[in-house]
């Protein structure tokens, strides 16, 4: 676990220089073969209590048992492979939705179809010294969302639950 494989494999005269992260828990005690996310080189590793007891040893021609979850290239502006990049990194399945963003989800309507202020930027709307009243004047502040809401109402997409 808790180690990285900094791949130094030379391919076409260029050193791979990809850092493959062996994430904690999964690799804490682990033996098997793992690929580099960039060049696909397969390494055998045997980790005990987080230490590389054996490896990484190249195993040319063999299939990996597992892929890293994440890898990046610090010498190339930190280009990276997110989890689940096909053939390079393994997917991370235990997620809250089938899509994964990792950045703010711009939401205008709750799951029952009513407006919720989950998107930005919001137009300025405070009074003196940052004061706010107890009203969201959506019609004035975000007329396009208000319109969309009226459409939803008409189409019956606004529900109680």
């Amino acid at each position: 676990m808790c180690d990285i494989i900094w791949c130094k494999k030379e391919i076409d005269g260029k050193i791979c220089n990809t850092v493959n992260y062996l994430d904690p828990y999964c690799f804490w005690n682990w033996e098997g073969k793992i690929n580099c996310a960039e060049c696909g080189t397969v390494y055998y590793i045997h980790m005990i209590q987080g230490f590389m007891y054996k490896g990484p040893e190249e195993r040319p021609g063999e299939e990996p048992d597992i892929m890293p979850l994440y890898a990046d290239k610090p010498l190339d502006g930190y280009d990276n492979y997110l989890p689940g990049t096909e053939g390079r990194t393994r997917p991370y399945n235990c997620l809250p939705r089938h899509i994964y963003l990792g950045r703010a989800d711009m939401v205008k309507f709750s799951i029952r179809g009513r407006p919720v202020r989950g998107w930005c930027p919001q137009p300025p709307c405070s009074g003196i010294a940052g004061s706010h009243g107890f009203k969201w004047d959506i019609q004035k502040l975000s007329p396009e969302v208000w319109e969309e809401y009226q459409e939803k109402l008409k189409k019956g997409e606004v529900k109680e639950w």
Binding site: G102, P124, G130
Partner: peptide
Amino acid sequence: TSPFNECYLYPLHDSRPVTG
């Protein structure tokens, strides 16, 4: 704080329009 950075409500404050 927001789970996986995905879920915010706006505004935080008028001086920070993209922060929720």
